[in-house]
Amino acid sequence: MAATAPGEKPLAASPSTWLVWAGMAAFLVFLLGLLVSVVVDSFGRQWFATWLPLEATTDWYASSWERFSLGHVIGVTVGVALAVVVISVLVGVPAAYLLARRNFPGKRFVNLLFLLPILMPPITYGIPLATVMYAFGLGRSVVAVVLVNLVPSIPFVIMTMTPFIEQINPSIEHAARMCGASMRQVFLRVLGPLLVPGILAASILVLVRTVGMFELTFLVSGPQSDTLVVAIYRAMTSAGGGEARQLVSAMAVMYTTTMLVMLIVALRFVNPTQLVAQVKEARDD
């Protein structure tokens, strides 16, 4: 695999640099091809052996909305995602604070405990968890969907928030206490406002991940508690060769649009690298 020297002038770029650029271009074209295909498909009445569909229509949107009761599905999706965000932030941020600031017996063990759900395949803990849910009669309920999504989300919030908290100088907290602030006031008046960007970033990331989470949701959800991504999967795999492709495409476009909006909002607050990078810091030690 050819590599280019970092810092070399672009004009002096070697053939290997061009190769890399070409590979990237191919990847991006492929990626855009996928996206545009789905969009075009969702607006075409029929599309077989031609470059473009013969006739444009928006019918697929209306019929998929009705057929899969997307109003309800989207309502569930939004509700689940918001609940997961709120709970995991409320629970994860104080835990992240403690792990960032304090030493206590068993801290390494606790860290490992919060790392495992991120490190393990979701199915590995998802199946036993779903079994327990069904045993408790929670199966196919919205509560179950929220609960399973908390398992990766809480550790994720902790991993995201820890660096944010570490970069706040502890003497700022000491100063607040010397000014007479109680622990609660330190949190509400000083740390809270300082952590807003981090909490916002973590919330958006958890939101995006929860909306996109397939494996865990699929294990416990039922007709009344499917999220959008599970509904699409079910439509693609339903018995009898699946639904009309365009119906699925229309759903996919709606899903993509929602995710894109969230992504654009997210990118206003966080660097793209952060979408994945915070995971590694915890894993690295």
């Binding site: 492929f30 990626l31 091809g33 996928l34 996206l35 295909s37 789905v38 498909d41 995006v208 996109g212 397939f214 991504v229 699409i232 999967y233 693609m236 492709r245 699925v248 495409s249 996919a252 899903y255 993509t256 995710m259 894109l260 969230m262 992504l263 990118l267 793209p272 979408l275 994945v276």
Partner: peptide, 19 residues
């Protein structure tokens, strides 16, 4: 480049099937 991470596998699958 971040797009596919957000889209997830189900959407990528639909795109691949068509494209």
């Amino acid at each position: 480049l971040v797009l596919p991470i957000t889209l997830g596998t189900v959407l990528t699958a639909q795109g691949l099937l068509i494209f």
